[in-house]
Design a protein around this nucleic acid. Sequence first.
DNA 1: AATATGCGATGATATATATCATGAATAATT
DNA 2: AATTATTCATGATATATATCATCGCATATT
Lengths: 230, 230
Amino acid sequence: MGFEKNLICFDCSMTSPVFCNLKPNEIARIDKNRIEVTFNPGEIIMKSGTPNTHVISFFEGLAKISLERRGGRNFILDFIRPPSFFSGPGLFIDKKNHFTISAVELCKLCLIDMDTFLDIMRENTKMAFAFMEISNNFILNLVNKMESLLVKHNYGRVAEAMLYLSRKIYYSNPFKLSISKKELSEMTGLSKESVSRILHEFTDEGLIQITGKTFHLLKEDLLEQISRNG
Amino acid sequence: MGFEKNLICFDCSMTSPVFCNLKPNEIARIDKNRIEVTFNPGEIIMKSGTPNTHVISFFEGLAKISLERRGGRNFILDFIRPPSFFSGPGLFIDKKNHFTISAVELCKLCLIDMDTFLDIMRENTKMAFAFMEISNNFILNLVNKMESLLVKHNYGRVAEAMLYLSRKIYYSNPFKLSISKKELSEMTGLSKESVSRILHEFTDEGLIQITGKTFHLLKEDLLEQISRNG
DNA sequence: AATATGCGATGATATATATCATGAATAATT
DNA sequence: AATTATTCATGATATATATCATCGCATATT
């Protein structure tokens, strides 16, 4: 039994923010130099510090990009929901991974050889520009996170996380939370105890309703206000 | 009296991390579409929120890139020392500036029309790759700042700032500080009172020596240790 | 079913750091 | 040189939030 390829490169590239710019022969090249992998929840897809040899094209699932902190308390920079693309910032610098990416829900993805990717980018300006756009979006997201850490406290950060999960990750309200309380604390940079307490307060005040793993945001406008001013 | 051009584009491009990749005709194009400006200390070069219409090629001086926080307490993401290049992350997204850049020391720089810049980048892959490298370096710097905010407190952050100023900004030890204590606090994300207190403690413990505006790092190894573990 | 293991909740306490308040020193303006 | 305005230093206080400790519940394991 070999490593099978179940995905069709052409179909996937149609929806990809980067590879949608490829010509047929370029898609063929990618197809020859890709590895299709499935990761179970909790498994590490890319470990910070290891060599950065591939870029990732996400096909299915939910993954998190996190920063390793001392004491095992990580910080989640962002989540990844397909269709999407990821390439580490070490690419042109030290060719190392600077983040740890791990699967939250079952993930299906392709690892694409870095050299192949760079070769194609050298020839395909459109793709290069799409790549830059993604890079810049990542920067804006980082800056946003930074602002949160700098000005918001407790309440504001939890409110922000709630809205983010509903709007950018689960695309629904109510939503069923697939991440743990610990991960919620790693999203916000707070301790898990603090997150617990604040979620409790939010339910007491009728802002949200939690039944098991299901979160229902009852007063989004108020949450937004707290997110902005808290 | 018009707006004179005193700098020679060719000389400048020799040292620039991005424009060193240009061919003569491309340099000529840049030369036609650039504005040469001088900024006095304190003056704003680019204001967060305004349209992002130009990229910057720094020729002389010292500038800071900062994030605006509510209450007038900004946060300094990085300093710029020539020869260097800056382009905002809003470039491909919303075409707005997301940071405020202001002069710390007298700055001489060129503003280069964004469309011209993009046109050239579309044709010149080498320059595009240099641009990506700079982008990624910016991300790594942001991530580093983020880690500091997340894990380091007081002492570690001030120690880090001291080492950074000596090694990356003034390239000397001792060095004469051209930034204010308030800016020191904006570099570290602390209150200026806290910065004062810690610098006092550092001098008491013989780690640094401050005479007027001159800072002398006496025990760099210890400062490094504090920066890592504090 | 019984036991173990881990995740989440909640109360009590400790502590880092901001804020406030005041005074000294330095720089700017007249 | 005199006066005003800024910047900086330092002590007292307040407070947000982490840490610690305990307990309950749910899920996994034997």
